[in-house]
Design a binder for these strands. Structure first.
Length: 577
RNA sequence: GCCGAAGUGGCUCAGUGGUAGAGCACGUUCUUGGUAAGAACGGGGUCACGGGUCCGAUUCCCGUCUUCGGCUCCA
């Protein structure tokens, strides 16, 4: 990555995927190869090994075989073949035959690329001379992957790897991976005593006192910003009768993913997995006027979703979470303006944390409610808004919610995996399902449009991302402990206690390390907890009634008045930097 | 859910077919020290859980649970 052009690296990895296939077929001649593209930072190849079990223990063998074959791979030669020829070459391999059929149907040319003694169906994009260009190969892992990405198909065996022009770059990459793992929120969370998971409630976090501070600070900020913008907070039931979800449409589309409490015949409750049905009920509580619109109802009620066990991933994919949710009821002509307001909030929130994000427009899925015309109109409007915003976005066909199209905010975790954070969804269906009405200026009954929106996404996922973003070293306004007071000896404990009171009275989250340990030990421990400020109190400080401050980056500020430091810190907290 | 891997004191990890060990953390005592680990002693583990094989299982086999890396699916 460091010294290579991205395109070159891509070609290198793609060549390596071919090499992997060659090695695997050499070792297991009966294996059926399927596809093997380059991906970001590496490559993979999917095989059908039939009933044969391939495990990670086999990877070194395969790697060795690849290295053996590599010297004979001095070029990539390509040729066009007819459909018939291609089918002859790949006879007995239903996967390749399927691909060949598809290529021919599209009227494209079937091309074969050959290096060494190995040829493969391929579009091209290889390094010129693999034997010279590939300097280091590493097979990383083995995984199952469905043929063509559909769970209806057979699961194939996927082998992941990466390659570089030399061993140094490979080592650098592997080191970077190790470093990234240290930022992993699943590791830092328990280490910093923010949260943990227990096997009796998989996918549901226990929040520890320090984590709760973080959690509450984020909600507090969210609450302030939304109160300013005309949002009204609500709280609604966690348990709702099945009938509510039948009305909303979730029973047909989501019930199988919900936790259910069955209290006997006719009393089946769903534990809520989303807030929208309750928001609809709240809108319907009384007669609404066009003057009430946009009506912005927010909430952070806990949600539960019975996610597949294999998809759980710490806070990033949990079964219990809270969204910084809001449902905005608007008239059709208010949609655009309201979205503009939402974009402004998104920008405000994400810039505070210095987070990089991108947008994705999700359009009508296979399972959807309502009529196609309404969908098309809504999709067009969202796209217009995106265009006008000037932000980068991608369109993912069929990714909308069943009730309407949506704009998602995407971010990456420490290992570069993309996650959906905030989402701004348009909904023409649920207000209709709940028969919601407002009276317009002419006295006519109209159905409002609902906008479902979250900015953080879920507090859980957002905190997971934040932990990795800051590597646990939170800015002062979020840090669970903002100041650690370190008395040099027990003689300084009283003075430390006075400082603690002074800071605590100013609402600074402060603690005194009163253990009978050396100052060095206390500093180390505060560093490991990533506390932003340490105050060292010794004889000198007591005598002059001054303090010595050590920042977690190692910088020192000595001979400060406590009051001076306090003002400085309060300003820093206020600025949220 | 599917494919692959892992589960040993709070944490990081050794180890063994004959009922377990280190460092850190924790407790007690000593030490009262100037910017990332002071010292001694001590407590703590049904080796994830349930079966099976064996005279004997933490170790071998099977199942379950949880977690991790992917796939599919979603904030």
């Amino acid at each position: 990555m460091v010294n290579s052009d991205k395109n070159d690296l891509n070609n290198l990895n793609h060549s390596c995927a071919h090499l992997l296939a060659a090695a695997v077929l050499d070792l297991w001649p009966d294996a059926k190869r399927t596809i093997g593209p380059a991906i970001e930072n590496g490559f993979y190849y999917d095989f059908d090994f039939e009933d044969l079990k391939i495990t990670e223990e086999d990877l070194p063998r395969i790697e060795k075989k690849m290295t053996e074959l590599l010297p004979t791979w001095e070029s990539f030669e390509h040729r066009e073949v007819s459909e018939k020829e291609a089918k002859e070459i790949f006879k007995g391999n239903p996967y390749k035959l399927e691909l060949i059929d598809e290529i021919s149907q599209k009227g494209e040319k079937v091309t074969i690329y050959k290096s060494g003694d190995f040829e493969d169906l391929c579009r091209g994009g290889h390094s010129k001379n693999p034997s010279q260009d590939i300097g280091a190969i590493k097979l990383l892992s083995i995984a199952g992957a469905y043929w063509r990405g559909s769970e209806k198909n057979k699961m194939l065996t996927r082998i992941y790897g990466t390659c570089f022009t030399n061993k140094d770059e490979l080592d650098k990459y592997l080191e970077m991976l190790e470093e990234a793992k240290k930022r992993d929120h699943k590791k830092l969370g328990p280490q910093l005593e923010l949260f943990f998971f227990h096997e009796t409630s998989p996918g549901m976090a226990y929040w520890l006192p320090k984590g709760v501070i973080l959690y509450n600070k984020l909600i507090e900020f969210w609450r302030e910003e939304h109160q300013k913008r005309g949002y009204y907070e609500t709280v609604s039931p966690i348990l709702n009768k099945k009938e509510l979800y039948i009305t909303s449409g979730h029973f047909d589309h989501y019930w199988q993913d919900m936790f259910v409490a069955n209290m006997g015949q006719n009393e089946e409750y769903g534990i809520k997995a989303m807030n929208c049905p309750n928001a609809m009920v709240i809108f319907g509580f009384k007669t609404r006027s066009y003057k009430d619109l946009p009506l912005r109802l927010s909430d952070t009620d806990p949600l539960h979703r019975y996610e597949l066990s294999g998809v759980l991933n710490g806070l990033l994919r949990a079964r219990e979470f809270r969204q910084d949710d809001a449902h905005i009821f608007v008239s059709e002509d208010q949609i655009k303006q309201e979205y503009q307001r939402l974009f402004e909030i998104v920008e405000k929130f994400y810039s505070i944390f210095g987070l990089e994000y991108s947008f994705r427009l999700g359009t009508r899925p296979e399972k959807f409610m309502g009529d196609v015309q309404t969908w098309n109109k809504a999709e067009k409007e969202l796209q217009e808004i995106l265009e006008e915003s000037g932000k980068k976005y991608v369109i993912l066909e069929g990714d909308g919610a069943f009730y309407g199209p949506k704009i998602d905010i995407l971010m990456k975790d420490s290992l570069g995996r993309q996650w959906q954070m905030g989402t701004l969804q348009l909904d023409f269906q649920q207000p209709r399902n709940f028969k919601l009405k407002y009276t317009d200026a002419a006295g006519q009954e109209k159905t409002p449009v609902a906008i479902h929106r979250v900015i953080y996404g879920s507090l859980e996922r957002f905190i997971g991302i934040l932990i990795e973003h800051y590597a646990g070293a939170f800015p002062a306004w979020l840090a669970p402990t903002q100041v650690q007071i370190i008395p040099i000896s027990d003689k300084n404990l009283d003075h430390a206690q006075k400082l603690l009171e002074q800071l605590s009275n100013a609402k600074i989250r402060t603690e005194v390390d009163n253990r009978s340990e050396t100052m060095q030990n206390k500093i180390r421990s505060a560093q490991l907890q990533k506390i932003p400020y340490m105050i060292i109190v010794g004889e000198r400080e007591e005598k002059d009634n001054l303090i010595s401050v050590r920042k977690r980056n190692g910088e020192n500020q000595n001979g400060l008045k406590a009051e001076e430091f306090l003002q400085q810190l309060l300003m820093e907290i206020e600025s949220k930097r």
